[in-house]
Design a protein around this nucleic acid. Structure first.
Lengths: 344, 344
DNA sequence: AGTTAGCACTCGAGACAACAGAGTGCTAAC
DNA sequence: GTTAGCACTCTGTTGTCTCGAGTGCTAACT
């Protein structure tokens, strides 16, 4: 098996045409539309080879060929040309910045929207993983004699709060002193560094406040545990219905069902630890309902640390070049947006 | 036009059967399945009257009848029997409470999920309208020399935060004193009572702190304005695809598109000012894409004050009795859940 | 040896007719 | 006022046919 120049050209033509039209592409189409200087009969011979090697598939005897997952994989890895979207992208980003967004969740929603409207696929955005972000401030606020609200502010001003139910009442001043002490000890640490051993040490150190400290520290730990799975924002879910491959409602419904399982998506996005772009094509997906889909994901950073993931999901017949370009651009620039909302 | 006992019974039978099967119901079906003691010919005569008066419709000459919007309206207003769901409902609520939810948004999501999975329709839940809730605590936290985070805690421990960019640097102690003063003046007021005139008065009163107070008060006002449209949580969107009336993908897509316009839904839900349940059937809907749908909504309270809305959306062929019963039950009991998370 | 023209063959999509079934409206009898 | 009977209408399904796109193979060409 040797893929010479001409076979590559033919494969590329098939994939491009199929991505464009969604129809199986025949030898005559290629010889007419793409200038290869050979007749359809020659192309037929070459296609026969490409099929033997598993890069293309014939849905039925008298139809044209469509790319296989293996074909797409080769295309994505070696053949595809990337688009540059600097200028277009900038305009879109400006549009987001014009709106007065100053909550992280609003921003993530907006990014998801942007992503889906620009690619016409379904987009997924995971919010920054709080464990990887650094503690900026911690504050205890008394609500009534029995309950205290714990507020944690981290990088990019991500705010979490939790009500702590106290066994011993604590007054405003005590809580203030405690807030200060905790801030001094913990500020600048990433949330995942504030683990049980460290908390145990603090408990000993702050002996005077005894039990109050104890229950508060437990609550801190609890809050952190709770926020372990990041929020997932979806947008353009129904874009899927625009693709003929999901005309079969049963298939579409299955996929929708899967998309509603946020935990599943979270674990899927969490796997993107690698820097850069990851493309998962059809059968490569671990989730059965997604074996007809391709997923393109990219991770994004805060302060140079990977904290979250963005991605799109569409049919295997996806405009990979576009998806990759858009994701790459947005993931590279997302930290700027995050800093922007952090600065108010 | 006079609807005697028998016509009512026949209309009810048609509606019930159609809601159940989704198929036009014929005279023979009724005479067989529902014991009215008359033959199909008699029922045919009666049906002819009901059609003349607009309660039922014949899709084509040789088909059975289906209820019209007018028919459903009569059914909902006068004929329908309500279900009691006390026991079932309680179990579902317990299930929610078992999970450790202590954020309002988690709760609302969970309620939406519950609603959609229990009714099999698409559910909408609007989060408590912050303007109607009372201020419980307000806190200013210094982030760095130039920015301060404003945290507002209201009823049911709904927390909002916003970063304020300061022209004049303010130190920790100053902010603390300010927090205390503002708390004293504003605590217990509903957020909508904290309006510009009141803020102006405060500016004068706190003359000593001059410009710092001024920019903080502006930020408070800004934060409140920003949070004006409540969050909308949807669940079970794709349930719509289960109904044969949305087999036509174009119709379904239109509806999905409408459902993604959160602002539209927000304004739709905001209209439910009336206490109790509101049923909007087919053509009664103002939004074109929803003229094939029915919407059932109910408002819910915090501390006896209406603060939000829950609802379901489905085909006009909806199990109104179930929808109404479920919504009524949940809306009546939602404040208990809200209180529960408020108490930690 | 590689390329091309020609041709028989296959398969799917669409058009069309025939048919069965459900349901109605009307009439005449009870 | 109710019912049985019957002719009529409309839809959905099934089977048959044709058309067109596309292939694979063979034989001829460069």
């Amino acid at each position: 098996m040797y893929l010479d120049e001409r076979k590559i050209k033919i494969l590329k033509a098939i994939i491009k045409d199929y991505i464009l039209t969604g129809e199986p592409v025949g030898s005559r189409t290629i010889s007419k539309k793409y200038e290869l200087g050979v007749s359809s009969a020659t192309i037929r011979n070459e296609m026969s080879d490409l099929e033997d090697w598993g890069f293309i598939i014939q849905p039925h005897t008298s139809a044209g060929r469509i790319p296989s997952d293996k074909g797409y994989r080769l295309y994505v890895d070696k053949l595809m040309e990337y688009e540059t979207i600097e200028d277009k992208g900038l305009k879109l980003f400006e549009r987001i910045l014009e709106q007065k967004i100053n909550q992280i969740d609003e921003l993530m929603k907006e990014v998801a929207k942007l992503l889906s409207s620009f690619t016409n696929y379904t987009s997924m955005v995971s919010s920054p993983h709080i464990k990887k972000t650094k503690l900026k401030h911690l504050q205890l606020i008394p609500l009534d004699t029995r309950s205290v609200m714990l507020i944690i502010v981290t990088d990019a001003n991500i705010v979490t709060n939790n009500v702590i139910r106290m066994d011993i009442p604590a007054d405003y001043d005590t809580l203030n002193v405690l807030s200060n002490m905790l801030n001094e000890s913990l500020k600048g640490l990433t949330i995942e560094e504030i683990n049980l051993p460290l908390i145990q040490k603090l408990k000993v150190k702050m002996g005077i406040y005894g039990e109050i400290v104890s229950s508060i520290l437990d609550a801190i730990d609890h809050t952190i545990q709770m926020k372990d799975t990041p929020e997932i924002y979806l947008s353009g879910t129904m874009n899927i219905l625009n693709f003929p491959e999901f005309e079969d409602l049963v298939k579409a419904k299955q996929l929708f069902h899967t998309l509603e399982e946020k935990e599943l998506l979270a674990s899927l996005l969490a796997k993107v630890t690698t820097d850069g772009i990851k493309v998962t094509i059809g059968e490569e997906n671990e989730i059965d309902e997604m074996k007809h889909c391709s997923i393109v994901t990219a991770s994004y950073d805060i302060d140079g640390k990977t904290v979250g993931t963005i991605g799109v999901i569409g049919p295997t017949r996806m405009e990979y070049s576009k998806a990759v370009s858009v994701l790459s651009y947005i993931s590279k620039n997302l930290d700027k947006l995050l800093r922007k909302i952090a600065d108010g």
